[in-house]
């Protein structure tokens, strides 16, 4: 418990730059994104490693959420969005013409800012994705639902009311349910869009503990407004400002000795 309150800084083994060490799972190459004529992301290149937590930080409107939503192509749902450049996940270009977006989203899960459980029972929320992807047998479903809820540190709180409505849960519980729902279908990457911004400090702590636990099995990309949170949970941090990637490095370096003046101003709270 105490450990999580101290900023968790990346271990010395990974204190080199990201690209040079572990295998990059996600490669963003010269990515630009337009809403109609407005350019929201400007020529971003970034390599993200497997099974680590990467945080995107920056002031509102800097494009960090937009970039996150590019990674599972949720931006496809918005009219008038155009993309230049490429994103490769495990060396597959996810914007190639023959990509099945459905398959992509199965492998790149997402947790949203506002918890959005379905108006169904707790059990059905977790089982929803499983059923979509062909799991039918009850024992299989039961097992995976329990395992997912355990992994999301929610099992003990809900095991007696699995079949009551998910909307009866508290905000923090709902968000953990959404995490359980996302991990149930075993994605490789989990995108988190300010998952704790609507929660109280205790619930936030629990989510953060959970994220640290989950990075053993998943690659996590998290957008956050909260710099302490980024410092506590992430291995790498990318700082964005008005659609541009200003700096990307090991979290400890970003927060203690950033290369750019803009980054320093932001992390020390001088603007944003």
């Amino acid at each position: 418990m105490a450990e999580t309150l101290i900023p968790k800084i990346a271990t010395p083994a990974t204190t080199l730059t990201a690209a040079k060490t572990g295998t990059p799972l996600i490669e963003i190459e010269n990515l630009s994104l337009y809403y109609g004529a407005a350019k929201a992301l400007k020529d971003i290149s970034l390599k993200l490693e497997e099974k680590v937590v990467t945080a995107f930080i920056g002031p509102s409107g800097c494009g960090k959420s937009t970039l996150l939503r590019c990674l599972n192509r949720m931006n496809d749902l918005i009219d008038n969005v155009r993309i230049d450049g490429a994103i490769k996940i495990g060396s597959h270009d996810i914007y190639a013409a023959n990509v099945d977006v459905i398959e992509l989203r199965k492998r790149v899960g997402m947790v949203f800012q506002k918890s959005n459980p379905f108006p169904k029972s707790i059990y059905e929320n977790v089982a929803y994705g499983l059923r979509l992807h062909g799991f039918q047998s009850k024992s299989e479903l039961d097992g995976t639902v329990e395992q997912s809820l355990r992994n999301a540190a929610l099992w003990d709180e809900v095991k007696d009311r699995l079949h009551s409505s998910a909307l009866g849960l508290s905000g923090g519980q709902q968000q953990r349910l959404c995490i359980a729902r996302a991990i149930a279908i075993k994605p490789e990457i989990i995108l988190m869009d300010e998952p704790a911004s609507a929660l109280d400090p205790i619930a936030t702590t629990r989510i953060e503990e959970l994220i640290l636990e989950l990075k053993k099995d998943f690659t996590i990309v998290i957008v956050t407004h909260n710099m302490q949170q980024a410092a506590r949970i992430s291995n790498y941090t990318a700082f964005f400002y008005i659609g541009e990637l200003v700096e990307f490095d090991v979290t400890a370096k970003i927060f203690t000795n950033p290369a750019k003046k803009q980054t320093e101003d932001y992390v020390t709270g001088r603007f944003g």
Partner: peptide
């Protein structure tokens, strides 16, 4: 969004 992000069509 939640449903689509889970890979539902």
């Amino acid at each position: 969004e939640a449903s689509l992000a889970l890979g539902a069509t």
